[in-house]
Design a binder for these strands. Sequence first.
DNA 1: GTCTATAGCCGGATAGAC
DNA 2: GTCTATCCGGCTATAGAC
Lengths: 190, 190
Amino acid sequence: MGNKGENNRQRIVSAADQLFYRRGYNQTSFRDISDETGIPRGNFYYYFKTKEDILGAVIDARVNAFEEMLEACSSSASDPRERLLCFTNMLSVSEDAVLQAGCPIGTLSSELAKDDDAYQEMSRAVFTVIRQWLVKQFNALGSSSSDEKAMDLLARMQGVCVMACAFDDRKYLRRSLADIQAWVNSQTLS
Amino acid sequence: MGNKGENNRQRIVSAADQLFYRRGYNQTSFRDISDETGIPRGNFYYYFKTKEDILGAVIDARVNAFEEMLEACSSSASDPRERLLCFTNMLSVSEDAVLQAGCPIGTLSSELAKDDDAYQEMSRAVFTVIRQWLVKQFNALGSSSSDEKAMDLLARMQGVCVMACAFDDRKYLRRSLADIQAWVNSQTLS
DNA sequence: GTCTATAGCCGGATAGAC
DNA sequence: GTCTATCCGGCTATAGAC
């Protein structure tokens, strides 16, 4: 009952997470994950039944990571606008990664939409966690149609990621984040 | 000197175009294109040296198709706002496809960003054609910072495509297109 | 639990007959 | 120009020793 196995499992998920982001799910092979972790290819099947199962574990890990991040934003301020700014600031913290590979959630979702349908529903979970948290913040601001605003904010950030990555344009990314944050600040507390 | 060869070449590019859109570039095999066209796999190498060359031809075809489409929008109206609305209406015309596979330009760009760098620059060409046309229209409206507005409009449309596809949400897509078009209409002719 | 070897399949690419 | 047969390598997945 040692937890060495759990360590290895986590290391596989963590490496797969990074690789799925930087190369894409379909373009990441077991060999890549093996090279990254030093764990032999054959061992993966002790922890996971299929590659799809690894994808599921990666998505679970991302859901957890975003839940923690959103919780941290919730804790960092009581003003919902401040919380929303904390969330959008992700685009600044991850600037280099966004320019190179886009948004991890958006690009995975777009990729999986072209594979089997079951995959796409898995990836939607990450968006859903964020969407619901955003709805809470807009509700706290007394907004009408909070879900629409949540979707609008998500869409705006996704669009900025797509374009910033497509043109590898750091200035555009920074300007657009500033625009988004100005919009958030304009959301009045009724 | 028959043009039968040119026909086959076009049929390959056309089938590849569709498949790259619906399944992704990396997930489309020569076998897929062969099944779709009835042209044997081996023949592809008479028309193209590598799969990458087929990608190049597909991107060229898309550039041409968008140039024609934008030209049609230019011809359809003299009011730049009307022209911009004509362009954004693409999201309505391609509703089903967008819900299933996202934006053909954006998703290809995101996919290729994770492959070799050279690929990504190829795919940027399609965005660039549209971007320049949009700048012209905003200039005609007397806008300041037309390029920023062009990028903002593109980003907004990209974001809507990502989210509409992720949630397979037709209502959201329609509402967001209406929002975008309202924004276009609010761009005053100075 | 860990590791090696390998099966079985499919990918892009090539050779060469017609 | 068209088509078939095939090479070679990489992929996921499995078998089985330790």
